[in-house]
Structures are given as structure tokens and as C-alpha cells.
Simulated assay, not measured.
Amino acid sequence: MAEIRTERLLLRPARAGDLEALHFILSDARAMAYWSSLPHRELDQSREWLQSMIDNPDGEGEDFVVEHQGRVIGKAGLFRFPEIGFLFDPAVWGRGFAQEALRPVLDRAFAVHGLARVVADVDPRNRASLRLLARLGFRETERKAKTWLIGDVWCDSVYLRLDAAGWPAARVRPVNPA
């Protein structure tokens, strides 16, 4: 898996040494408010989650740890093609890091992996993620009620889609492997 450098970020493969930093994010209730699971209470939950990132088979997905100035601030990628996902430390929200990370992920999805589309499943209460995906060209395709049982609360889904044709060549920048 490639490493990608943007103006401010490094997107790289996950490694075992990322456990503490990712657990810090995965155990934060704000970061996990709209995720598909409750915040992680135990380090072993995060270890298992991280190991699934590390063990993601080639050709099934491409998920990156995101660093800023040498510090892990989140993850962005396609754990399983073609679904995109991202999670960032709330301390860095509002600084444009998610959009900066997702652009090269989408570039690779279409140009390197040849995907015809990328999809997203977003909790409708997560307005920030819905706005971000709309800015990237995603369009809503469907809404469904009670799609995720998180703890004892049923959550709904907004499904979005970005077709390769909707990711204009003018927007695709060369991917710079590190």
C-alpha cells in the first residue's frame, strides 16, 4: 500500500504502533458519536479494530492512518471497496484535514483501483460529514430508518454515491507516493 503526502498530511498504512493514538480517538465519545459502534472502552477493542486495518487484504480496500506533523489524527480510506470512511480526533475538526485526506483517497479509488463508484453510509445527524461529502461531489441516493443498532439506540442512514464520472479529471491530482 502506498504512502500519500498532501500539503499538510501523511496518509500511510496502519501499523501496530498506532494503537495508543487510535485508541485515544476511538474511545472519545465525540469522535464516535456517529460511528457504527460505541466508543471503545478497552484497549483490546481498539487493538482488534487496528488489526483489521492492518490485515485488510490487497484488492479489497485501502485504509490509511492520517498523520499531521508526525501525530496520528485519524483514519481515512476505503476499508472495503467501494465504501469510504473517515474518523478524526475532535481536536483537529474544522481545519480541513478530512477533505485534504479524502481527495487523494478518491483519486486513488478511481485512477489506481478503477472503481466505478464510491459509496458512503452516514448518520443523518452527522451534518458535518454530509456537507463534506457533498463538497466532494457525493449525491444522496437513499435514506433508511433503523439501519444500525448502536448500544441500545437505533440509528438511521443516508446513503451517498460518487461515480467516477462525477470526479472530474481536472480535480484529480497526481498521487505522490512517499
Rank of each mutant, 00 (worst) to 15 (best):
D123A: 14
L115S: 03
H40F: 08
D44F: 01
K146F: 02
G114K: 04
H23Y: 02
D63W: 06
L22T: 07
W49P: 00
L136S: 06
I54F: 02
V65K: 01
H113P: 07
P104A: 03
E20C: 03
P90K: 04
N126D: 15
R15F: 04
A14K: 02
G151W: 05
F81E: 09
R71S: 12
M53R: 13
Q51I: 00
I25P: 11
R12W: 09
L130E: 12
P13Y: 05
L50H: 02
R47V: 00
P13S: 07
G77Q: 06
L78D: 10
A33D: 12
G70V: 08
L38G: 05
F138Q: 08
D107S: 09
V153K: 04
F138Y: 08
L106I: 06
A111C: 04
R30A: 15
R8Y: 03
Q45P: 00
L132W: 04
A116G: 14
A21V: 03
L22A: 05
C155S: 10
A91R: 14
F24L: 05
L78C: 14
G151K: 07
G114F: 07
L10K: 01
A109F: 08
R143N: 10
A76G: 12
W93T: 08
L43V: 08
F64D: 01
D28F: 03
E67T: 13
L43F: 01
E67W: 06
G137C: 05
A16D: 10
A16S: 13
P104D: 05
I150M: 03
D63H: 11
A145H: 13
V65D: 00
T147S: 11
D28K: 11
F79A: 13
W35M: 15
A109M: 09
E142R: 14
L10D: 04
W148D: 08
L106S: 08
D44Y: 00
R131Q: 14
S129M: 14
L11V: 12
F97P: 10
L9D: 01
R117Y: 07
Q45G: 01
S36Y: 15
K144C: 09
D44G: 00
A134Q: 11
Q99G: 15
R108H: 08
E60S: 14
F86V: 04
R135Y: 00
M53I: 05
T141N: 05
D107V: 08
D89L: 02
F64T: 09
F97W: 08
D156R: 10
P82K: 11
M32G: 14
G59C: 07
E20S: 14
G85Q: 06
A21I: 01
V118S: 10
A98K: 10
L133I: 09
Q45R: 01
D123Q: 10
D44T: 03
L106P: 09
N56Y: 00
L50W: 02
S36V: 15
A101M: 07
L130W: 06
Q69V: 06
W148K: 11
